[in-house]
Simulated scan of single mutants.
Amino acid sequence: MTGLSRDAEVIDRLPCTLLPVVRWLGPREERAVTVRLDGREQHALAVEEYDYGDRTAYRIRLRDDRTIRVWWDDGAMRWGWLPPGRDARPAGHWPEPKAVRRRWWPEREGWPALWVHTGGRWREAWLWGREDWPDGTVVYEVGMTPAGAQLGEGLRRHRRVYDPRSVQPRRYGAREDGSPA
């Protein structure tokens, strides 16, 4: 899993030449961002955007309630609080079904919520079942909403090899970008 490669450039004072277009982000528009500062990745909320045309700066609020301004930099920031992901590998079936240990979760209310990385992005999913194969492979059977459908409607069954780079736990009511649903 590759993280952010460099620290974000903190802005002491915004440039006054060529005044930026300032966009105030209200409480429902604040966006979760992961930013690297002092060599470590931190979660923050973007609360203001300063558009200079060729560059964009953000005022971000860190978890300790400090606010700072930083230039957007793909190597130093990414939207959301999920780690960079890798698409989950599809899983087949073990040739000897009796050798596989299985666990199933009860209907809807009991399904653990997950993020599954597929198609190059994190998507909401629910864990329906888990298989432990004799070779140590763990397979998750998940339900994912098809593109364009309402969250949780028309769930499609997928079998994926478990890997922490492609499957993450999800809190109910949280979006991919970390904002409340």
Rank of each mutant, 00 (worst) to 15 (best):
E109Y: 12
H43V: 08
L25T: 02
D87A: 08
M77H: 06
V22M: 11
R102Y: 10
A99Q: 11
E96H: 13
P83G: 03
C16G: 09
W71R: 05
A44W: 03
W79M: 10
A88E: 02
G120L: 04
R59P: 02
G80D: 01
I68K: 04
W126K: 03
T34V: 06
G80Y: 03
L19P: 10
D51W: 11
A91N: 00
R89A: 15
A99H: 06
W105I: 02
P106V: 07
T118M: 14
V100E: 01
P15F: 09
R40Y: 12
W71S: 05
R101F: 07
R103W: 14
L14A: 07
V22D: 05
D73H: 10
E48M: 14
T17H: 13
R40W: 11
W81C: 01
R6N: 05
W105R: 04
W79N: 05
D74C: 06
L114E: 02
W94E: 00
R40H: 14
D12H: 11
P20W: 09
A57L: 05
I68G: 04
D74F: 07
R23F: 08
R69D: 14
D65I: 08
G26K: 07
I11H: 04
E107T: 14
R28S: 15
D87H: 07
V33C: 10
P83V: 06
E9D: 11
R23A: 11
G85A: 05
R36V: 03
L14Y: 08
D51L: 08
A76G: 05
R108E: 13
D73M: 07
R86P: 00
A125R: 00
Y58N: 07
W72A: 13
R31G: 15
